[in-house]
Design a protein around this nucleic acid. Structure first.
Lengths: 192, 192
DNA sequence: GTCTATAGCCCGATAGAC
DNA sequence: GTCTATCGGGCTATAGAC
């Protein structure tokens, strides 16, 4: 990937996070990336094409980060909790979650698909850890691991929403501690 | 409120839900409401002013609906569950939650405040029901009622996000059933 | 690969007539 | 109260030169 294309993708990742899809203009991308109009349209067919490249990079970065945090020698439940408590730029919101508010992103299959795949991948990873905990006799086996994983993902996404509305990270942190306390209440012999 | 102003507020509520704040133009509002430009600017100073009126109406409608659903002679925990299972246009997203993705809404105190107040009111209402359940000996008294209420709000908001990404109501429903199962596991003598 | 020019349209708001 | 005209600017994309 050429240097100009590289900078365009990086800049688009930033602007999609800050301003959303509808709020990000090709002009703004070019200005911040220091790349001319002709150059941008040489490398990317359209705004949607560039946004797709930015989305794909953001989702793979987020998945790689989650995988890093959920790996290690610790008990599976501890790794899920570590992921839940992962420090985040809460008031900036979720880079990919916020894109779901944009009607054009949702209406465009190509732009929606990476979001779905990313959430599916993260949910599956958490679900696998919960099942692992159940098989090791460390978590109530009667729980639906996939449902709890989905709930966990939802708490995080919803936490961002509440925090941005409040103008404070407090609701995010409270929601996270709430779900952790409910899950740990179903843990077996996990008191260290 | 005059008939024109009334139609403008109603139409703006619809458009904010469908297209967001940045995606809703005064022109689009006027066209759908069947009200001319001059008329609109006679009743409302600006787009933000009209959006504020629409936001206020939407939040008071949502709070009234929640209050209706969480009232009744049933046990407090049942009323919380009934609220959680309340039928919703899931794929349209939350009318007010989605506005938190807009940077201009978040940056404008007047437009952010109604969102914060609505989420605070709903969280407080759920929290009160959870405490009521605890005082009646129907819910584990060691739980932090306010934190669980915040978690509950977050699950709903995050459920919308996951559902819109997936293009399916399934993740929303799964997340809701997950949190219900975790809360009911802390219920005392609630098996009917 | 990158440049400038231009197209055609929409934006949010104001002015002043009626 | 509602109308039309108009402002200065931004939007996404294409064309054709260099």
């Amino acid at each position: 990937m050429s240097d100009a294309a590289e900078r365009l993708v990086l800049t688009t990742q930033e602007l999609l996070w800050e301003r959303g899809y509808g709020g990000t203009s090709p002009r703004a991308i070019q200005d911040r990336a220091g790349v001319g109009q002709g150059s941008m349209y040489h490398h990317f067919r359209s705004k949607a094409d560039l946004a797709l490249a930015a989305e794909k990079r953001s989702t793979s970065e987020l998945i790689a980060e989650a995988e890093r945090v959920m790996s290690g020698p610790e008990k599976p439940l501890e790794r899920v909790v570590r992921y839940l408590r992962l420090e985040r730029a809460v008031l900036k919101g979720c880079r990919i979650g916020m894109l779901t508010a944009d009607p054009d992103v949702i209406a465009t299959e190509a732009l929606r698909a990476p979001l779905k795949e990313a959430f599916d991948a993260l949910t599956t990873r958490i679900s696998a850890l919960l099942r692992e905990a159940q098989e090791a006799g460390q978590l109530d086996a009667s729980l639906d691991a996939h449902a709890i994983a989905t709930t966990t993902m939802a708490v995080r996404q919803g936490g961002y929403v509440l925090a941005r509305a409040a103008g404070s990270t407090q609701p995010y942190e409270e929601a996270i501690e709430g779900i952790i306390s409910l899950i740990e209440a179903r843990a077996i012999g996990a008191r260290d």
